[in-house]
Simulated assay, not measured.
Amino acid sequence: MQKLLLAVDRLSTWVGKAFAWTVVGLTLLITWEVFSRYALNRPHGWVLDAQIMLYGAMFMTAGAYTLAKNGHVRGDVLYGFFRPRTQAAIDLTLYVLFFLPGIVALTWAGWTFAQESLAIREQTFNADPLPLYPFKFVIPLAGAVLLLQGLVEIARCVICLREGAWPSREQDVEEVDVDKLKEMVHVKDEDIAALDSHAARQEGRS
């Protein structure tokens, strides 16, 4: 199982790094257009559309990469104090209630939009139109990779609930150093365990 989880991590990482090269294309394109517009007085109407598509492709495909690296923004200041099983329970609930419905809808709708765009050979609206349908296919691609990575994260939550510890990643990313934060506020692991027990009792009463 661990080999499969890491294999999906590597796939998400590869996709993210591959599309990260679009930033080089963006840099060269913008530099050339600035020179052409202000030095040669020859602006190009299609460049703005190309910039938007390149940036959009990079932005969408970065989702699975960031999830694989555990780098999405969340309330680490509180979350990091919880025991691994409590963290896994919170993550699993959020994945099932919010992540899965949203990403499934994104992938499904994105595939429909891409097919419709291809059927009519959709183009941008300017004097020098660009084909839009290749970019539309990035939407279901990004959604599918993100959905696959999300299923891996759900599997990690289940493993953590069963074993009491998070399975290892190739690269763990932690925005907040929880151990140092515990020392600063003088919090011990026993205090966190007592807080978890109190929360569990309150949930039982409600």
Rank of each mutant, 00 (worst) to 15 (best):
M1G: 15
Q2M: 12
Q2D: 15
L4Q: 15
L6Y: 14
L6C: 07
L6N: 07
V8H: 03
R10N: 10
L11V: 15
V15S: 04
G16P: 01
G16R: 00
T22K: 01
T22N: 14
T22P: 00
V24L: 15
V24E: 09
G25R: 05
T27V: 14
L29A: 13
L29V: 10
I30Y: 07
T31W: 11
T31Q: 06
P43V: 09
P43I: 11
W46C: 04
L48W: 10
D49I: 02
Q51E: 15
I52G: 02
M53I: 05
L54Q: 10
Y55H: 13
T61Y: 10
A62H: 04
A62T: 06
A64W: 01
T66W: 01
A68L: 03
K69E: 05
K69A: 08
H72I: 10
V73F: 09
V73M: 07
G75P: 05
D76Y: 01
D76Q: 08
V77K: 12
Y79C: 02
Y79Q: 03
G80K: 15
G80N: 15
G80R: 13
F81G: 01
F81S: 03
F82C: 07
R83M: 06
Q87V: 11
A88C: 09
A88G: 06
D91G: 06
D91P: 01
Y95I: 15
V96W: 13
L97N: 06
L97Q: 09
L97R: 15
F98Y: 14
L100T: 13
L100S: 05
G102A: 14
I103T: 02
A105G: 13
L106M: 13
L106S: 06
W108Y: 13
G110H: 02
G110S: 06
W111H: 04
W111Y: 07
F113G: 00
F113K: 02
F113W: 12
S117G: 04
S117M: 08
I120S: 06
R121M: 10
T124F: 13
F125L: 10
D128E: 14
P131E: 11
P131K: 09
L132H: 09
Y133G: 00
P134A: 09
F135M: 01
K136V: 01
I139Y: 04
L147W: 01
L147F: 03
L148F: 09
G150W: 02
E153T: 03
E153D: 09
E153K: 03
I154Q: 00
C157G: 00
C157F: 02
V158I: 13
V158F: 11
C160K: 00
E163K: 05
E163T: 10
A165C: 04
W166Y: 14
W166F: 13
P167K: 07
P167R: 06
S168M: 07
R169G: 07
R169H: 15
D177K: 14
D179V: 12
K180R: 14
K182Y: 09
K182A: 08
H186I: 04
V187P: 00
K188A: 09
K188W: 05
K188D: 02
D189A: 05
D191W: 05
I192Q: 08
A193Q: 14
D196A: 13
S197G: 04
R201P: 01
E203P: 03
G204D: 14
G204P: 00
R205I: 07
S206W: 02
S206A: 11
S206G: 06
